[in-house]
């Protein structure tokens, strides 16, 4: 849930979502869900000459699984907070994994 929480802090920010088919879409992050599906508004395609379709599209929903990268503005990211959150997430998932074998033995 680390990145779900992280993306929730990015709602309202300008982001560029690069898809696995190389299409890059810039827009304002409107919402995100647990699968990291993304809704963008006020979008424009980064390379409209290569991708002339979508010119008329203003809002879109992107399935999380087709995302390769999301470019963020560094001023909106608290890196120290992120690293702390990542350490805490690592510890909690490790504890969950240690608990599972005990359940299997019981």
């Amino acid at each position: 849930m680390l990145f779900y929480s992280f993306f929730k802090t990015q709602v309202g920010q300008q982001v560029t979502v690069e898809l696995k088919n190389d299409l890059a879409i810039q827009g304002v992050l409107e919402s995100v869900d647990q699968f990291l599906n993304i809704k963008l508004r006020d979008i424009h395609v980064v390379d409209p000459e290569r991708y002339p379709h979508m010119l008329s599209i203003k809002n879109c929903f992107i399935r999380g699984s087709v995302v390769r990268y999301v470019q963020l503005s560094p001023s909106t990211v608290d890196t120290a907070l992120l690293q702390d959150a990542a350490r805490r997430e690592a510890q909690s998932t490790q504890q969950m994994n240690q608990a599972k074998p005990n359940v299997a033995q019981a």
Binding site: F3, L72, P74, V77, T79, L82, Q83, A86, E89, T93
Partner: peptide, 22 residues
């Protein structure tokens, strides 16, 4: 995948290897 390589500072990751790099 896709003959891509990244070099950057690791700020966060999870069990899927989702990452934030600077």
């Amino acid at each position: 995948r896709g003959d891509r390589e990244l070099r950057g500072r690791l700020h966060a990751y999870d069990q899927h290897l989702n990452m934030v790099l600077g």
